[in-house]
Design a protein around this nucleic acid. Structure first.
Length: 606
RNA sequence: GGCUCCGUAGCUCAAUUGGAUAGAGCAACGCUCUUCUAAAGCGUAGGUUACUGGUUCGAACCCAGUCGGAGUCACCA
C-alpha cells in the first residue's frame, strides 16, 4: 500500500528543488489531513519553508501547488489558504485506495521487526478480589498485547501474582479464627470474594482491638510522649496504626507469626495458604474469562521473592552496588537524579527491588524478550525509574528494552476509591451492572440473545475505560459507563451492525465494474481508513490504546452520517452500489479489527 | 518541604506532538422514523485552554513565575 503522505512530501521536495533550486529534507515538511471546513484531502504547511526560500508562505504554497498539480496525475486540485496548501486527490486515486484495501487485507497493520516482547499486567494480590483499578490495568495490558501482535511483534503475556506476604496471612488468620470451616461453596460465594471477606473481617477485628487499646494507659502514655506536633489524639492514632500493628497488636503478632511460619515452610500453614490461594485463583479465572483475557505464563511471588540475590552479589563484586558497614547493600543512583536505594537488608533478606531485579533476569532467560513492558499504576513511577536505572547500571542486555506503562488511578465521581471506606468498585459487581443495563436496553428492542447482550455490555464498560489516555487519572462514573449512546462502545458496534445488515441483504452482489466517481463523504471515509495504519503505529510507539479507541469512534461516527445520507442498496447506479458495498465491507472489517485490538467484540445484530 | 505529573465547555474526554475559526459525547432545548435497524442523524446553546509574563509567522502544547490538585520521598507494594 503506497504511503500517500510520503508521496506528497516527495513531490513537494521535488517541487522546491525545481522552483527554488533548494534542497529540503522530509523533516522540514508537515502534511496533515485537511480540516473539515476546507476543501481538500491533505494539507501541506509551508510556514517552515519561508525563511529558507526567502518568500512568503502563501507564495510558496501557490507555486508548490501549481507544480504538484502538474507533476502528479493523482492530484486533482489545489487551493491556497494563507500558508496552507490544500490538496485534493483524484477520484481514481481514491478508488484505487479501496481496491488496494481489498487486495491487501493487512493494509491497516504497521510493520515492525518481529522482536520479542513481554507484557506484564494485572498482577493482583491474592487476599481480595479484583476491582476497578485492576480492570483498567487489564484492559491496557490486553490492548498493548493485541496491538503489538498486530504490529508484527512476538508477544507473551505474563503476570506476577503477589501470593505471599502479610496481606494473605491476614485473610488466612481471620479464616482460621472465625471461619468455622466455611468454604466458598458452603457460603454460596464466588471464591475470591469469599477470601476477601475474611480479609475485611481481619481489618474489622483489628480496628476493634486498636480502638480498645487506645483507651489503655499504655496508649495514652505513648500519645503524651510523642505529641511534639500539634496533632489531636484522633489524628495521632490514625497515623500510628502501622506501628501499633507491628509493636502492640495481638492480631498483628499472630499474622506476623503466620508469615514466619510460612517462610519456615510449616506444613499446616502452607496447606492453609494453598487452600485459600486456590480459592482466589478460581475466582480470578472467572473474572478474566468474563473480561476475555488470558496469559501465557504466571509468575508467583512465592517462587520469585528470593530471586535477585546472586545478581546483587555479582554487582557488588563489580562495584556497581556497594555494601554498608552494617552489611546492607545499596546502589547509588544519584548520578541519574535519583537516590541511594536499598537492595538487601542487613540481615540478608530481600526487598521488592531485589525481587524485581531477579524476576527481570529470569524472564529474559526464559523468553529472550528484547522488550519488557510493565503495566503498573503511576504511584510506582519512582520505583520503576530506580529499577530500570539500576538494571542499566548493572549493564544487563535487556536494560534498554524496559518500559513502565504507567497509568493514572481511577477515581469515582465522589472521589478516591478507598478500601478503608468501603467504596471500592468490585470488578465482578461492575460487570454484572453493565450486563444488566445492556439486557434492559436490549429487551426494549426485543433482543434477547445473551451473547449479544454480553458483547454490548462489555463493550460499554471496556470502551469507557480504554478511550482515556492511560497516563491520565480518570473519573469512572458507573452511570455513564453503562450508556449505550454517544461516544460509547455500543455506538461503534451499531455502526458495524448496520453494515452487516446491509451486507446480509445484498448477498453476493459483485457485479458492476463500471467506473464510479466517489463522492466527498466516501473520499473522507477512505482517507480515514488509510490513516489507520499510522494511528496504530502511533498507539504502539506511545503505548497508548486510547488513540485506537478514538480512531474507531471517529470512523463509526463518520459512517453513521454516511449511512443516514447515502443509500447503498438503493443506489442511483449499479456502479455506485458495487462501490459502496465494497466500501462498507472494508469499513466493517476495519471496525472489527481495530476494536478487537481493544478487546471489544462486535455483534452481528443488536 | 524536595522531586514528578496534572489543570481544556456545567460534567466526561479529544485536539494528528508548535498549525487554520480549540473539537466530540453527556446533560438542556428544538427537528428528523411507512426508509439498508432511530443504540442513529441534523440544529441551537455552551470556552480569556487555571492565572501572569516570555519565546515566534503562529502557543492548550515550549520557557519562567503564581495559584490549585494528585503521586512520591519506607529495610511497604
Amino acid at each position: 500500500m503506497t504511503d500517500i503522505l510520503k508521496e506528497i512530501v516527495n513531490v513537494a521536495i521535488e517541487g522546491v528543488k525545481e522552483i527554488y533550486q533548494a534542497d529540503i529534507s522530509p523533516g522540514d515538511l508537515l502534511v496533515t489531513p485537511t480540516k473539515k471546513e476546507h476543501k481538500g484531502d491533505f494539507t501541506l504547511v509551508t510556514f517552515s519553508l519561508a525563511k529558507a526560500l526567502r518568500q512568503s508562505p502563501p507564495q510558496i504554497a501557490a507555486s508548490l501547488g501549481e507544480y504538484i498539480l502538474q507533476a502528479r496525475s493523482w492530484v486533482n486540485d489545489t487551493e491556497v489558504v494563507q500558508g496552507f496548501l490544500n490538496i485534493s486527490l483524484s477520484s481514481s486515486y481514491w478508488s484505487s485506495v479501496l481496491d488496494e484495501m481489498i487486495r491487501e487485507p493487512d493494509y491497516w497493520k504497521p510493520v515492525h521487526a518481529p522482536e520479542k516482547v513481554l507484557v506484564e499486567f494485572s498482577s493482583p494480590n491474592t487476599n481480595k478480589p479484583l476491582h476497578l483499578g485492576h480492570i483498567r490495568n487489564i484492559l491496557l495490558g490486553w490492548a498493548t498485547y493485541k496491538m503489538f501482535v498486530a504490529a508484527g511483534y512476538n508477544v507473551n503475556r505474563v503476570q506476577i501474582v503477589n501470593d505471599r506476604g502479610i496481606a494473605i496471612c491476614k485473610s488466612m488468620l481471620s479464616w482460621n479464627k472465625f471461619g468455622e470451616g466455611q468454604t466458598p461453596e458452603s457460603a454460596g460465594m464466588k471464591s475470591d470474594h469469599f477470601v476477601g471477606e475474611w480479609y475485611v473481617r481481619f481489618e474489622k477485628e483489628f480496628s476493634k482491638e486498636y480502638k480498645a487499646w487506645q483507651q489503655t494507659a499504655e496508649a495514652l502514655e505513648i500519645f503524651e510522649a510523642r505529641k511534639e506536633q500539634e496533632l489531636t489524639e484522633e489524628e495521632f492514632f490514625k497515623n500510628y496504626k502501622n506501628q501499633y500493628f507491628n509493636l502492640y497488636s495481638l492480631l498483628g503478632a499472630e499474622a506476623k507469626e503466620m508469615l514466619l511460619k510460612w517462610e519456615a515452610h510449616d506444613p499446616e500453614t502452607i496447606q492453609l495458604w494453598k487452600k485459600m490461594n486456590s480459592w482466589v485463583y478460581t475466582g480470578f479465572e472467572e473474572t478474566y474469562k468474563k473480561l476475555g483475557v488470558e496469559f501465557d505464563k504466571l509468575y508467583f511471588e512465592s517462587d520469585t521473592y528470593l530471586l535477585g540475590k546472586d545478581i546483587i552479589e555479582e554487582g557488588v563484586r563489580r562495584n556497581v552496588f556497594y555494601k554498608k558497614d552494617d552489611g546492607s547493600i545499596w546502589v547509588d543512583l544519584t548520578s541519574q537524579g535519583l537516590d541511594h536505594k536499598l537492595l538487601l537488608r542487613k540481615d540478608g533478606t530481600s526487598v521488592y527491588m531485589t525481587q524485581d531485579l531477579g524476576t527481570a533476569q529470569k524472564r529474559y532467560d526464559e523468553f529472550g524478550a528484547e522488550r519488557m513492558v510493565y503495566v503498573v499504576g503511576d504511584e510506582q513511577n519512582y520505583h520503576f525509574q530506580a529499577l530500570f536505572a539500576m538494571i542499566g547500571a548493572y549493564g544487563a542486555p535487556y536494560a534498554k528494552g524496559l518500559y513502565h506503562l504507567s497509568y493514572g488511578m481511577v477515581d469515582l465521581p465522589e472521589g478516591k476509591m478507598k478500601s478503608r471506606e468501603g467504596n471500592v468498585v468490585d470488578a465482578d459487581d461492575l460487570i454484572d451492572v453493565v450486563l444488566k443495563e445492556a439486557s434492559d436496553a436490549a429487551s426494549e428492542r426485543e433482543v434477547n440473545d445473551p451473547d449479544i447482550i454480553r458483547k454490548i455490555g462489555m463493550a460499554a464498560l471496556k470502551y469507557f475505560i480504554v478511550k482515556v489516555d492511560p497516563r491520565k487519572r480518570m473519573i469512572f462514573d458507573p452511570k455513564a459507563s453503562v450508556d449505550l449512546q454517544g461516544q460509547t462502545g455500543p455506538y461503534i458496534q451499531n455502526a458495524y451492525v448496520r453494515i452487516q445488515s446491509i451486507l446480509r441483504k445484498a448477498g453476493e452482489n459483485n457485479s458492476g465494474h463500471d467506473t464510479y466517481e466517489p463522492i466527498e463523504d466516501e473520499k473522507l471515509l477512505l482517507n480515514m481508513l488509510s490513516q489507520c495504519r499510522q494511528i496504530i503505529d502511533s498507539a504502539v510507539k506511545e503505548y497508548n490504546p486510547a488513540l485506537i479507541a478514538n480512531y474507531a469512534y471517529a470512523l463509526a461516527k463518520e459512517y453513521h452520517r454516511y449511512y443516514h445520507d447515502v443509500k447503498v442498496l438503493h443506489a442511483e447506479s449499479e456502479a455506485a452500489m458495487s462501490f459502496r458495498l465494497k466500501l462498507i465491507r472494508v469499513i466493517g472489517e476495519n471496525i472489527l479489527n481495530t476494536m478487537d485490538l481493544l478487546g471489544i467484540e462486535m455483534p452481528d445484530r443488536m
